[in-house]
Write a protein that binds this DNA or RNA. Structure first.
Lengths: 190, 190
DNA sequence: TTAAAAGTAGACAGAACTGTCTCCTTTTGC
DNA sequence: GCAAAAGGAGACAGTTCTGTCTACTTTTAA
């Protein structure tokens, strides 16, 4: 086996297990067994489980923004770009292993006294970066009122994600896209 | 100590610890220590930890609907009742120990293969009962279009809750109440 | 009053978890 | 080619977790 492939195999196994069973419920031994590496190899790449968890969140964050930007690029105006974010959600919700947002799930497990600071930082940065992305789009699209609309759009994104996870209803993406459209039309017409 | 008080003390300690540290992260020993009962007493009332967890969710569910109904009762029309739900959220978000929705958090920990069925049932019932409450209000308020609006209102409730937890911004309740008002006005005028 | 129910205190078993360590082999990079 | 880095296999320590059990005391209710 290629030495450099070990780290990747660990992260891929962790990604699947964390997604299916939750982060806390997934033991190191299980990750090691399923990735097929030796325990020493694991601890060579990740000094502790928390380092793997942080890496997991960094990767999820990266892919989240790749997806959002891929869809936003389909729109011509900032308003269109914003609306295409909901198509990104639709694509996400339809994935067979969709288990809700890793960061919202992460809040449950790591947003507490005593949790590893580098993990909490991953969560904080993810939420603030998502906010900034929407903020940047709306600042361009409706510069006078973007401060009002940003939390509304973020609520629609969050709400769709949680409800799609709780109920399995993929249509939430489309439903909230329409609400977003109405909000944007209303605040752009003025 | 009064014998009948033991069960209550256990549940109260569990409620605080589950809220502060998460359900999985809270060990039986900690709950026993903080509630001040003997281990045998604990297992007398709850055959297993999962039974305590189910009881925890049943109580949270009960209080959630008590609160929603208390606020809904302040409105005269179904539309007003629906809008008052967001004032219930505001009250909730302002509590010093607000740590997000226990059921959304529970999804992260228990919505997986192998989780205790009675716990998953608590979660499922909570989401469907909340849906039915909103559905009942809107069915009365705008009978022709309630099917469209229910998921929108639920999204606004969910989104506000998650974002208030993630960012600490209590204003989400008020912001989304306004969006809900616009949605209801639009669909009632027709 | 008295038997049953509920409680206290805490040892203990058995499993699971994180992280360390040893011994040895393979791969990489200069 | 060869030293250093990376990897394999797995024993082991130390902790924590759930759940059981013994021995004894207090409260409740008929």
């Amino acid at each position: 086996m290629k030495p450099r492939a070990s780290k990747e195999k660990i992260v891929l196994a962790a990604e699947r297990l964390f997604n299916d069973n939750g982060v806390h419920s997934t033991g190191i031994d299980r990750i090691i067994k399923e990735s097929g590496v030796a325990k020493k190899t694991f601890y060579h790449h990740f000094p502790s489980k928390n380092d793997l968890i942080a890496e997991y969140f960094r990767r999820k964050d990266l892919r989240w923004f790749e997806r959002l930007e891929k869809f936003a690029a389909k729109g011509k105006t900032p308003q269109e770009k914003t609306l295409f974010l909901f198509d990104a959600l639709k694509e996400w919700f339809q994935e067979p292993d969709f288990q809700g947002c890793p960061f919202i799930r992460g809040l449950s497990e790591f947003n507490k006294e005593g949790a590893d600071p580098k993990i909490r930082q991953c969560l904080d940065e993810h939420f603030s970066r998502t906010t900034h992305l929407v903020e940047a789009l709306l600042k361009e699209g409706c510069p006078k009122e973007y401060k009002k609309i940003v939390p509304q759009i973020l609520s629609l994104i969050c709400g769709a994600t949680v409800l799609a996870h709780a109920t399995g209803d993929v249509r939430l993406a489309k439903i909230n896209k329409k609400v977003a459209l109405e909000l944007l039309e209303k605040h752009t017409r003025k």
